[in-house]
Every structure is written in C-alpha cells, then in structure tokens.
C-alpha cells in the first residue's frame, strides 16, 4: 500500500499540481497522527491506591461540586460499584479478589481524556475539545443536550443533569484544565498520599510505567492500560490484577472513535456526488423506454394503416382490371357479332 501511495503522490507531483493539494503528506495518512507533542497525562498505579478517597474530596472542593451524600471519610461506599455522576467527577471503587488471601484492590474512575476522544467526534456542535495540554474540555454554552457523547464514550464517563429543566449540562472530569493552564497539577493528584497518581507528560509517564513493570515484574500485569485502548488515553493505568477483574474493559480495541466512523462519513460525499447521476440515468432510461414504446406503437398503427391502404388499392385495381377485361370481352363479342353480320 505504501508503494502505491508513494507512486500516486509521485504522479500528482509529475502533473505539477502537488502544490495546490495543500497539506504536507505527513498529515494525510490516518496512522501518522501521534497526538499533541508534550501533552500531559496522569499515571494511576492501582497497586499503590489505598482507597482513602482524598482525591474524591479534593475534586469535589476544587470543582465546587454539590455536597456528597455521605462524607468522604465514609469508607463503606467503596464497596458499592459506583460510577461518575453529576455530583462526582471521580469515584474510587473497591474490588475484592476471589482469592480471599489477597488484599482488596482500589481503582479510581474518571474521564480518561482520550487522545482521539469519541465524545468530541460524536458531538455535532463541537462542545468537546481535545486541548494541546491533554484535557478534553466541555462547553455547556453550545451543548444541545442530545447526549450522543454519552452513547459514544466507551468508558461510560459523562453524566447528565436530567433533573435540570432549563440548563442541563453534561458533567465530567476536566483534568483540572484551568489548573494545568496555570502550571499547577490536577486536584486529585495533588492530594494523593501514596503517590498512586503521577502527573506529567504522557510520553514520560509511559516510560515510568514501563520501568516500574520492568523493575517489579511480579507486582504488575505486563500491560499499560490506556497506551492503546480506544486509540490511547491521557490517563494510564498499572495494575497487579487483570484489568477486567477490576471493572476495566479489555475488549475495547485500539480503534479510536474517529476511526470507527470515518469510513461511514467518507461514503456520504460519494452518494451526494453520484446518486443524482445514477438516478437521472435511470430516469433517462425510463423515459427513453416510454418514448420508444410510444414510437413503436405509432409505427405499428402507421404500418397497419398502410397495409390496409395497400390492400384496398389492390382491390380497386383488381376491380378496375376486371371491369376493363369485361369491357374488352364485350367489345370483342360485339366485334365478332359485327363480323358475323357482315358475312
């Protein structure tokens, strides 16, 4: 494929129109988008999390979210299988292993800030933006409330203010985008007592994660969750137990949201361009057929008329001939009579 593409570009170049195509070739192939350089992320080392919920607490205060139903010191809610809601950008869940001797595992859930966000791809008003810093931000001022972003999100993160009659918003973690903008680190990371959360450039976090796996192969599963899942996420995860055992889907695949839909989108202009041609063609053929049928019919009628005419002429001719013969005979007879009389 590479060769044919290079050839193709070569032909274009030979035709001397490559300048008018515009974009450099580097930006025209799907596989070559590598995300914003120096984009930030967070590494969540699940093996270090103790379920203290201080990240939830800090998140709630910094983002001025509503009072929680129970205090953040309440450890009993950890056992419930919670998800992000309109009141909580992030939650920590506890997972008890089937093997009773092993310690429970705690996992923090929040928006993963995909490199190619499905929510942004799905939004028809561009309410979501993947910022160069890493966060995926949401703008309620343009949101229509179709909730297609929630359908699209493979991690079930966005929540919706269903009880708000006039100004319902989609609610999700912002990765503390304003704080990152100001050079600070996200609220949850800043308060984590066990360094289960590490903030930094995503590419650096990836090397840290790999190094931890290399140094402690017994402690970790050999996989950095988020490196490739759904095209890669800004949040990365390390775990000591298989990810599917702690509620993280391993069947998402590595195709991003935009990749999943770009094929269908690319058919649209082809239909717009070619359907009218095809349909007009069919219409033309239909009309031609009708016209031909009409002409054929006309022709048949004319032929019938002509045939009819022809026959009658013959008849008349025959009649005339007959009469002529009759007259001739009569004259001959008369002549004979005459001759007889003279003799």
């Amino acid at each position: 494929m590479g060769i044919s593409r290079r050839k193709f570009l070569g032909w274009i170049g030979a035709a001397g129109i490559s300048a008018s195509i515009g974009k450099p070739a580097g930006a025209s192939s799907i596989s070559q988008f590598s995300g914003f350089p120096d984009s930030k992320g967070v590494l969540h080392d699940i093996t270090r999390c103790v379920g203290c919920r201080s990240c939830e607490d800090s998140c709630n205060k910094i983002n001025e979210l509503p009072e929680p139903d129970t205090l953040f010191s309440d450890q009993t809610v950890l056992a419930k299988n919670r998800r992000t809601t309109t009141k909580a950008f992030t939650v920590v869940n506890q997972y008890i292993s089937k093997n009773a001797s092993e310690k429970p595992v705690f996992r923090k859930i929040q928006c993963n800030h995909c490199l190619e966000p499905a929510c942004a791809s799905a939004c028809f008003v561009r309410a979501f933006t993947k910022t160069p810093n890493g966060p995926v931000t949401y703008d309620p001022d343009v949101c229509v409330g179709c909730r297609y972003c929630m359908i699209a999100c493979p991690f079930d993160i966005p929540a919706y203010e269903y009880d708000e009659p006039l100004t319902p918003r989609v609610v999700k973690c912002t990765m503390c985008a304003p704080r990152i903008e100001a050079g600070e680190i996200p609220g949850c990371v800043s308060v984590c007592p066990t360094e289960a959360l590490t903030f930094g450039k995503r590419k650096n976090l990836l090397s840290i994660a790999r190094e931890r796996i290399r140094n402690n192969p017994d402690r970790y599963i050999d996989h950095v969750y988020g490196e490739y899942e759904m095209g890669g996420t800004s949040w990365l995860y390390l775990s000591g137990v298989p990810f599917h055992e702690i509620g993280m889907r391993e069947d998402l695949g590595i195709k991003s949201g935009p990749e999943l839909t770009s094929g269908a989108l690319s058919i649209v202009p082809m239909i717009v361009g070619l359907w009218p041609v095809l349909l007009t063609g069919i219409y033309g053929m239909t009309k031609r057929k009708e016209k031909n049928a009409f002409i054929e019919q006309e022709g048949a009628v004319a032929a019938a008329v002509e045939r009819a005419n022809h026959e009658s002429i013959k008849k008349i001719a025959a009649a005339i001939e007959k009469e002529r013969l009759g007259k001739k005979k009569a004259m001959e007879a008369a002549e004979k009579e005459k001759e007889k009389g003279i003799k």
Binding site: G22, K23, A27, I30, F33, S34, G35, F36, P37, L115, E116, P117, A120, S121, R126, K130, P132, G231, S256, G257, P258, E259, S262, L265, V268, P269, V272, G273
Partner: peptide, 27 residues
C-alpha cells in the same frame, strides 16, 4: 491552511467541513 494536525479528530473536522461545503455547493 498551514496548521499542522496532531489528531485524527482535528484533521477530520477540517476535511469534513470542507467536504460538506463542497457537497452543498454541488447540490
């Protein structure tokens, strides 16, 4: 026109917008 696209999403946003304009004009 000379901005670089770092994500497929931004690239598609650009190309699709251009495509939609062409489609409207062609119709």
């Amino acid at each position: 026109m000379n901005e670089t696209f770092y994500t497929l999403h931004h690239f598609l946003l650009h190309t699709e917008s251009v495509t939609y304009l062409i489609m409207l004009l062609s119709l």
